[in-house]
Amino acid sequence: MSFISIQDVFFSYDEVEEGKPVRNAVDGVSLDIERGEFVAVIGHNGCGKSTLAKQLNAMLLPDSGKVIVDGDDTSVEEKTFDIREKVGLVLQNPDNQLVASIVEEDVAFGPENLGVAPDEIRRRVDEALKAVDMYEYRTHAPFKLSGGQKQRIAIAGILAIRPQCIVLDEPTAMLDPSGREEVISTLLRLNREQQMTVVLITHFMDEAVLADRVVVMDSGRIVTQGTPETVFSQVELLKRHRLDVPQSAELAYKLRGCGLKIDKIPLTQEDCVAMLEEAMR
């Protein structure tokens, strides 16, 4: 069985607007996430991707349908903390996730909540900070660090809980390009070297192309999914759902529309140059 299995989940916030209940934020989603996978979920703001993320660690529970994490149903109350120990959630605003005034004390917060022995917390904190390359900053105040550094500390705070999966809800939306790069390369490293399962929610297409699988959401539903190549070659579909494609894919798509024979839509600069070189020789 898959590590996380989302089975026909519906969810709506209890808000009522002009007498009518607001549409479902998650509207019948089924999705399996395998151990060690890197899944990117993309979609425009308000498409339900953040709500879906909160379903994965029992922060929100489905109105109907089920989310099964490593065999446990998220709606079983006794399992809530087991699930949060297995699936860590990193949020968008790095400032609001750091709860202590010193980096290492913040990273220790999770294991402290779990009642881990002090020596073991120390070990986990050091390890987590090294994994995100922030060990030298362990005694700094998070307040003075850059956005990318803060977000990496937030990731370390989750890693110290020793989860099997990290879900990140637009972790790079508030960062500058170098901060984004720091966070993404950290995630790639965790996924490749430690086989960490990563679910990255984003609306930056250049981040999504790095994933093993891309899931496209709109209006609370999954529109399409597959490898980055298959998803990003559906340029028109993406545009219809208010999304973007990398410039290389867009160019290739336009040329294909004029009759150029292209087998594989290029997602990176190098692939695109190679493809065009081939075509023009």
Binding site: P246, Q247, S248, E250, L251, K254, L255, Q269, C272, V273, L276, E277, M280
Partner: peptide, 28 residues
């Protein structure tokens, strides 16, 4: 921009494309 880089790379490889292409439409 990615597109500028792509066109620059093609230029370096001897293709007769203009310099300083800034948008996908221009490249197209």
């Amino acid at each position: 921009p990615q597109i500028t880089n792509i066109m620059q790379a093609l230029r370096r490889r001897g293709f007769d494309v203009p310099e300083g292409v800034l948008t996908v439409d221009e490249a197209f």
